[in-house]
Design a binder for these strands. Structure first.
Lengths: 191, 191
DNA sequence: CTTCTGGTAGACTGGTCAGTCTAGTTGGAG
DNA sequence: CTCCAACTAGACTGACCAGTCTACCAGAAG
């Protein structure tokens, strides 16, 4: 029935776009969905619209929730960081990035909205979290938005670039590297 | 003559690839170079090879030299940071990133080499610079490579993502933001 | 003067692809 | 039973494009 078909199309499109970017052909997507090409066009007016839908889905996948009551600051950040790094630096996150980034100029409005609803929103929440810790006197007073931006940059700045350029990461384990980044970050915000 | 033509082809290809990514057609490139299509194929065996040449050029453009004798640490880093940010976050740097990143899977070897000779090399030099300052007792002892990686991440982590997603930066001036990042970074490495 | 090299214009091949169209099938609602 | 909506396979159009080919031209070297 209709909803299930739409779902299958979106799933097939997602995996196809992740693998080959916008280059994926509609024929290929229909084939992978086990569906006639016409069915794709029955649910989506054009390849572009299908792509936008997939893009929105992909973008939402990086969102990570922050547990609000931070009893142990370091522990809270660590938990967040591990998930965030896994989502953004994992094979799928990197593929998504590769797929979305080159198409931004053709979809500026959508792209901005996608950023705002994912990374932008996460900056906002992190900033709030930091502001709380600062108010409680557990962190040095600083611009919390700036702190949040630095935090995310440290977690997925150069490491993302490395992966985007297919550079294998050195031997350090994920857990160790993440902890190291957190400690480094906290040193900046110590009172 | 031959060398001049080759140059014009590369320049035209560069601006075309920057604008439309790998999608640019060879016809278009030849037209922009004011040259026959055959001339393009006279100098390059295929579009892929032309692309690789352009990619290598683009990658080298982010390289920034570091003055080796750091009398004033903050001043030295600031000078470096301003240029680095301008190169990586400027319109051209962002376009280059958008152009290169999606093609990495088709050119893994070349991509790795490009990373190594640009960003990788810069990490190496920065690390050396930091190591020197640590030896001189002007910075807290830390893993200098890790410090260099964090430094570059902070300079172009989230800000690059924002620009890649066409998110206009808030009102803060480049100079102010850069200085703020440097100060934040140095606080981590204070003795 | 001839020959060779690097250049020109532009036609052509073979392939891919978005999107449309035709003609027919199936399953559920009335 | 009939009708309709969603589906199917597959042919088709029009566009684009990498790469080749033909036929021609200009200038420098011998």
């Amino acid at each position: 029935m209709t909803v299930a078909h739409r779902e299958r199309v979106v799933r097939a499109a997602t995996s196809s776009f992740l693998a080959h970017g916008y280059r994926s052909s509609v024929d290929e997507i229909a084939r992978r969905a086990g569906v006639a090409k016409q069915t794709v066009y029955h649910h989506f007016p054009s390849k572009d619209e299908l792509f936008k839908e997939v893009a929105r889905d992909l973008t939402q996948r990086v969102m990570v929730e922050l547990e609000s009551p931070p009893q142990d600051l370091r522990e809270g950040l660590l938990r967040f960081a591990l998930v965030y790094r896994q989502r953004t630096l994992g094979a799928q996150g990197i593929s998504a990035f590769r797929t979305l980034v080159p198409e931004v100029p053709r979809f500026r409005g959508v792209a901005r909205a996608m950023y705002a609803s994912s990374v932008g929103e996460m900056v906002r929440r992190l900033a709030e979290w930091f502001a709380g810790a600062m108010d409680a006197g557990r962190l040095r007073r600083e611009d919390p938005v700036f702190a949040a931006e630095m935090f995310l940059s440290m977690l997925a700045g150069l490491d993302r670039v490395k992966r985007l350029f297919s550079v294998s990461d050195e031997a350090e384990s994920e857990a160790r590297r993440t902890a190291r980044i957190i400690d480094c970050f906290l040193r900046m915000l110590e009172k």
